[in-house]
Design a protein around this nucleic acid. Sequence first.
DNA 1: GTGGTCTAGACCACG
DNA 2: GTGGTCTAGACCACC
Lengths: 124, 124, 124, 124
Amino acid sequence: MILLDYRDKRPIYEQVVEKLEKLIMGGALETDSRMPSVRAMGMDLAVNPNTIQRAYNQLEQEGYLYTVSGRGSFVAPESEWREGKKKKMLAEWRLVTERAREAGLTREQLAGQLNQIYEEVQQA
Amino acid sequence: MILLDYRDKRPIYEQVVEKLEKLIMGGALETDSRMPSVRAMGMDLAVNPNTIQRAYNQLEQEGYLYTVSGRGSFVAPESEWREGKKKKMLAEWRLVTERAREAGLTREQLAGQLNQIYEEVQQA
Amino acid sequence: MILLDYRDKRPIYEQVVEKLEKLIMGGALETDSRMPSVRAMGMDLAVNPNTIQRAYNQLEQEGYLYTVSGRGSFVAPESEWREGKKKKMLAEWRLVTERAREAGLTREQLAGQLNQIYEEVQQA
Amino acid sequence: MILLDYRDKRPIYEQVVEKLEKLIMGGALETDSRMPSVRAMGMDLAVNPNTIQRAYNQLEQEGYLYTVSGRGSFVAPESEWREGKKKKMLAEWRLVTERAREAGLTREQLAGQLNQIYEEVQQA
DNA sequence: GTGGTCTAGACCACG
DNA sequence: GTGGTCTAGACCACC
């Protein structure tokens, strides 16, 4: 389900967060369904449960999960995180785009890439 | 000239690298002009000279500076780094744009932002 | 395993890099096997851990190692460095050969040496 | 006559040595002709006379020059340095060739390059 | 425990 | 004085 890349420079918990974010965003995990316990997922990924706990905490903070004491963590409804995520992504995208412009990339080049990226998914 | 943000989680030397990259890319530093000595800039930023040296080393590796031992570090001509930088930026920009698409941002939204970012600079 | 030559004018970290390059190139270190920690190898060679870290960093940059913060450094698969190394070596070899020609060495002399060098290893 | 590359990592005096070696080896400087004084050549290259002195010293040690106290430095006859130079070059060439072999370059590749390098000069 | 960063202070070659 | 290297010792995040 999740594959870790140990050669990645980022901490493990961040990779777990990223993968789970994608799964939730992509609709692969149903709203209000129960997430595996930190211990179970820790076993599964051959990783310390603390690391999973940390990932869950961050996901909860970002609105992807909600926790019921003593019951576990559950997938939050899209409304909880959709807008926040969009805002964050847009801010990051603007930053990177500005740096791209400073590096000498033209508007035309980026516009071309943009079309390409959105067409790829259209075909799929 | 350079302001450090000690609350930033990135290492100091990386912040220095980033700021100097921008200055050089923006043409603020003339080709072949001498950079401040590692000691001088260390004093200036209230930072250990070794930290500055690390930044200078990275900048040299990326082609922004060239160093003459015992004489100082100098700004490299644009031809040394321009193409490499463009390639790296384009790759990064594609990654972020793909993630933006996955987060639900539409092509129209991004295209609008793109125009806005490039118009800003046109006015300046 | 590694012997340092303190009379050598090259920096220690470079000597370490060179020796480890040879070990990895020669296949003496298995892919994905863990390198000694910087502290351990520092103790071993009676050298500051920072010096070893510098060597590891350079090896990582050249593609011989990959590092997982908090876990250790590991031997990268051959595919990571083989081609780059070949190119660099060929360039260096051409330079030295041209200088040998200028010094008056004949093509026949060098060709003879060449055969000798490659036969040595054939016997082994 | 001599062009210094300030971006070269090697010390200046070494560059001067190298260039003068080539000139003498190539026969551009007549045997027993007088070299410019260290002061004159220092002026010429916009370099400290000490640096030139150091280069002359090394050239003398390698047999390319001989010094007559109070008269100056003179170009030594070829017999003085030819054999020593060949030996040194051959040793260096063997080292680099062995490293090339270790890096995975084949005998055929190097033999091909060898022919190419010697043919270039034949045409000239 | 690991690697990553930083500091303070030292010595060296070079020019 | 400059960059380059090295040491000893410190603190941090991650696991």
